[in-house]
């Protein structure tokens, strides 16, 4: 059984075609890294999977059931967690409220149940003492960890992570990557767009190189990073390596 399958997905904004027939299959407990230049369509792909964007053509399956054209999009979204580059915590709610909002309002958990669940997750990710803080009092790394916890509190079967460390100061990146590493070890199925190549290499079972709205190359991290077949993949990786050295 596959956790997620995307078939011939096409998406454009007006005349601008962003995804040109993307195929992607993700097995249960698999971690797939999406790499590619900025503007190649990584975020759009993730947003389409979460039904945040209407797609033009193609089909998306979650646990072998089609979700494209689903009548109840909310029922689909509660099974998929997404974490954004810019955290997007609710600034008028404290950490506890941020995390318990959806479990209470969407899943119908009682306050006590939702808080038990939240406390457990916050403790696990080193945020126990931040329960009553408001987001603007947290560091970027803490905010992003809260955002991850907020998504996890829904007990999603699939997590989508969109460059979750790109907006962070370099010294805060590690704490967030560590959380994601733990999730992977716990068997969470994940699709993550990232610019952290060494991290992708460590954590991903498979790496997809996205180029101008197409998945140009798929392989194990070793295949992609040491032995890329496509010239454009090679170019992209060389550019990244150069940028890192400078």
């Amino acid at each position: 059984m596959s956790a997620l399958a995307v078939e011939r997905l096409t998406k454009s904004f007006g005349k601008h075609v962003v995804l040109r027939g993307v195929d992607l299959e993700v097995a249960e407990h698999e971690v797939v890294a999406l790499i590619g230049a900025s503007g190649s369509g990584k975020s759009t792909l993730l947003r389409c999977i979460n039904l945040l964007e209407a797609i033009d053509e193609g089909r998306i399956f979650l646990a072998d059931r089609e979700i494209t054209g689903a009548r109840d999009v909310n029922a689909v979204r509660r099974r998929i967690g997404i974490v954004f580059q810019s955290f997007n915590l609710f600034p008028h709610m404290n950490v506890m409220r941020n995390v318990t909002l959806a479990p209470r309002d969407v899943l119908g958990l009682s306050k006590a149940e939702a808080e038990t669940r939240a406390v457990e997750l916050l403790d696990r990710f080193g945020l126990a003492d931040k329960r009553l803080e408001y987001p603007d009092r947290l560091s970027g790394g803490q905010q992003q960890r809260v955002a991850i916890v907020r998504a996890l509190a829904m007990r999603p079967e699939l997590m989508l992570l969109d460059e979750v460390t790109s907006a962070l100061d370099p010294e805060l990146v590690a704490e967030v990557l560590q959380v994601i590493g733990e999730l992977a070890q716990g068997g969470m199925t994940m699709v993550l767009a990232t610019h952290e190549m060494s991290f992708a290499r460590d954590i991903a079972n498979r790496v997809c190189f996205l180029d101008e709205g197409r998945i140009l190359e798929v392989g194990t991290p070793d295949e992609i990073f040491t032995n890329p077949k496509e010239p454009r993949t090679q170019q992209f990786l060389e550019r990244i390596i150069k940028a890192r050295r400078l």
Binding site: R47, N74, I80, M154
Partner: peptide, 10 residues
Amino acid sequence: QEAAARSLGL
């Protein structure tokens, strides 16, 4: 903010 809320199933 809306995207974050809707993505949680609200």
